[in-house]
Design a protein around this nucleic acid. Sequence first.
DNA 1: CCTTTACCTCAATATAACTTGAGGTTTTAA
DNA 2: TTAAAACCTCAAGTTATATTGAGGTAAAGG
Lengths: 146, 146
Amino acid sequence: MQDAHLSVGRVAKRAGVNVSTLHFYEAKGLIRSWRNTGNQRRYKPDVLRRISVIKAAQKMGVSLEEIKQAFASLPNNRTPTTQDWQVLASQWQQALTMRISYMKRLKDSLTGCIGCGCLSMNSCPLYNPEDTLGDIGSGPVILDKK
Amino acid sequence: MQDAHLSVGRVAKRAGVNVSTLHFYEAKGLIRSWRNTGNQRRYKPDVLRRISVIKAAQKMGVSLEEIKQAFASLPNNRTPTTQDWQVLASQWQQALTMRISYMKRLKDSLTGCIGCGCLSMNSCPLYNPEDTLGDIGSGPVILDKK
DNA sequence: CCTTTACCTCAATATAACTTGAGGTTTTAA
DNA sequence: TTAAAACCTCAAGTTATATTGAGGTAAAGG
């Protein structure tokens, strides 16, 4: 069964990422592999799902560090079930909901605000330093209010 | 009128950014200043609005480079008017609308998708490499489809 | 006047998320 | 069997967005 153990190149191809990315994710503790006798990486097929989830989460603005933390809740003695993944999904869905509403507020502020005097700072909802969800798009994004 | 020329420290304080950030923005061509006889930076008060707009745009996921390009459409021989700013605002508002709808699609996919078999790649809307708006949250964000 | 802020420049450091390259080994396929 | 393709490790490079520090100058207040 060549199905039960995938080489790094195979995984890369199927997941649509570079081999170097897989090395990188492994170094970061996001995925795991074992080695064959020749020291080459071998993967269980469920690594593909992990990578999918990583990519999906990144699209939502979740950092690798946060993804790693979320993955920590997965069982490491068995292959994660659908249920296990659903737990992650619902966490991130909440965060997405918040993010979307933040974007909406931003958008609503935009027209009224950019043209008026209030954008000269402080009171403007568009430029509110207190807004902790404001980090979208640059640098790591805080999804949980730890 | 100490109102017509602001020192870098004054601007930094009023805008809520570091002095070093102002140096940085100036080096990037996002703001401008002139020098007094002692080689210190002096700013017109409208720099405050520029900084507001930069910060607001960043919250929407616009990169400094894109902000700079947008600023290029502003008049540089006179202080930008409300109208000038509105042009920028409406551009970004469209981008925001797209971004929001993308996030919504993401969210809608999330529950149905993460638990099912499709997340094993390719056909899953959550993991679709063709989705050019997928860059949200890490690295520069493409807002225009240039 | 003189001390304390505030400023100046330029180089280096920081972080996230990867990619690239050098130098060497293992697999695979003709 | 042997050449090409795939792998390996480890270090350095890349981009965006700043921040920090060193070494020196200018301005402001008592």
